Computed example of a mutant assay.
Amino acid sequence: MKTSFLNVAIQSPFMVFLGRYLCLWLSVTPTRGLEMWPFLLFPPPNLNLIFSPTLKKPPSRFWILGRTRNKSSSVKKLESLLFSQFTFNVIVKQVLGLTPEEPQTARILEDFLTFMRGLISFPLYIPGTPYANAVKARIRISASVKQIIKERRRNNNIIYNNNDDDICGNMNINSQKKGSDFLEILLGVDTLSEDEKVSFVLDALLGGYETTSILMAMVVHFVAKSPSALEQLKVEHECIRGKKKKGESLNWEDYKMMGFTQNVINEALRYGNIVKFVHRKALKDIKFKDYLIPAGWKVLPILSTVHLDPSIHSRPLEFHPWRWETQRQDQTGKKFTPFGGGSRCCPGSELARVEVAFFLHHLVQNFRWSVEDDDQPIAYPYVEFQRGLVLNLDHFAL
């Protein structure tokens, strides 16, 4: 089955920018063998594969302090770039198998930040503009991924050639490789071209990085302004830590005990509205109430109008995580859609929640922080902080 893409007479600037094989443009499943690609990249929660080494041991207090400004002062300064670094380290490990210490990781992150700045810029290609810089950054990212693919194939050939006479050994190697990272899965799909594989990698990085880092920043910002929420988080995570041995990593059972943490994450998603709308296209005529949406028309559901609707959520303009103690999850399908819905629901939603929960686990036990009063989140059009969310770390346990 060949890939079916949206038909356009002239490629839009964003299609040129993002690549014509990005899943954003797909109208049907891309190819046989990748129908379940989101679940290969982000395994279901009952599988421990989701707990990669990078995620099991989030940044320690010493790692965080090493990224603060004014290290000689009793008040440390921490910028929101920390969240970007952490979430990128997790997703690049899941997708490409790269560790934070490898030089390629830092280069790809730098290009990716340039790429993201151009994603919301005016699509005019003039040298020096954010859009032009982003197009060049995407070319560099693609070149980096292609180089990784080339090296991976060469290394795999060396391994297989050295084990030609060991059939069982080859089967074991192949089994280990399939579960190592998303790129290894893509390399095993012969029906995809190299450009399509590169686009799938970019798609996974894009979906698993930007919104997660914003969510993490929003949670830290809102909790800093809610002492009661911070105190309840501290109690919950101290209880979890008290049941574990010194230095023992978190696991799925620990995650299931983070009930109030999930309430905080839900409220940050609702109140923060990180993704305010989604792009959809009617593939056939659709009748919605008294309206007819013709085939081919674009539809932009505005998620924030539901999340901030006082008829659905009481006191919607307040950060109140306790509302989720009484609001049953099975009744919020149409009232709470931060990750979209249906077949196009975000495949990395659970991974995002796990990342934020594990980060909070370490943060609330070791730090107290405050934010500047005038550093408020704004929509531009995605959520940003006016001053970059500078945190004052005025107390921490050593």
Score class of each variant (00 low, 15 high):
320 H>Y: 13
274 I>H: 02
273 N>S: 15
9 A>D: 14
263 N>S: 03
271 Y>V: 01
78 L>V: 03
47 L>D: 14
209 Y>W: 12
192 L>F: 15
36 M>Q: 14
320 H>F: 13
23 C>P: 02
328 R>T: 05
240 I>R: 00
205 L>C: 13
106 A>R: 04
366 N>T: 05
283 L>Y: 04
13 P>D: 05
200 F>A: 03
41 L>T: 09
396 F>P: 02
104 Q>Y: 03
173 I>H: 15
219 V>G: 08
264 V>L: 06
376 Q>A: 08
59 P>H: 12
139 I>L: 06
122 F>C: 09
366 N>V: 03
73 S>G: 08
386 Q>A: 12
149 I>F: 14
313 H>K: 05
303 L>G: 04
351 L>F: 10
267 E>H: 02
82 L>N: 05
217 A>G: 11
254 D>Y: 01
237 H>C: 04
1 M>G: 01
295 A>M: 10
30 P>S: 10
329 Q>I: 13
260 F>H: 00
209 Y>E: 08
142 S>M: 03
255 Y>V: 07
258 M>K: 06
138 R>V: 00
330 D>P: 09
174 N>H: 10
246 K>P: 04
312 I>D: 00
176 Q>G: 04
211 T>C: 04
140 R>F: 00
193 S>A: 03
335 K>V: 02
234 K>L: 11
177 K>W: 05
363 L>F: 08
112 F>R: 00
306 V>M: 01
78 L>F: 03
285 D>I: 04
205 L>P: 12
384 E>T: 11
207 G>Y: 08
62 F>H: 12
322 W>K: 09
175 S>H: 12
31 T>K: 15
156 N>S: 01
243 K>Y: 03
206 L>Y: 12
377 P>R: 09
124 L>A: 08
127 P>Q: 14
324 W>G: 00
276 K>I: 13
116 M>T: 13
388 G>E: 02
353 R>K: 15
44 P>H: 15
62 F>P: 07
330 D>M: 05
149 I>G: 07
146 K>A: 11
44 P>G: 15
109 L>A: 08
185 I>Q: 11
159 I>C: 03
341 G>A: 13
112 F>N: 00
302 I>F: 15
48 N>S: 14
64 I>P: 00
54 T>K: 14
50 I>T: 10
305 T>F: 10
312 I>A: 00
163 N>L: 10
246 K>M: 07
74 S>L: 14
179 G>V: 01
264 V>C: 05
70 N>I: 06
386 Q>I: 13
137 A>Q: 06
11 Q>P: 15
61 R>F: 11
384 E>I: 11
220 V>P: 00
361 H>S: 14
339 F>Y: 11
259 G>I: 11
37 W>C: 13
124 L>S: 02
281 K>H: 06
370 S>R: 01
349 S>L: 05
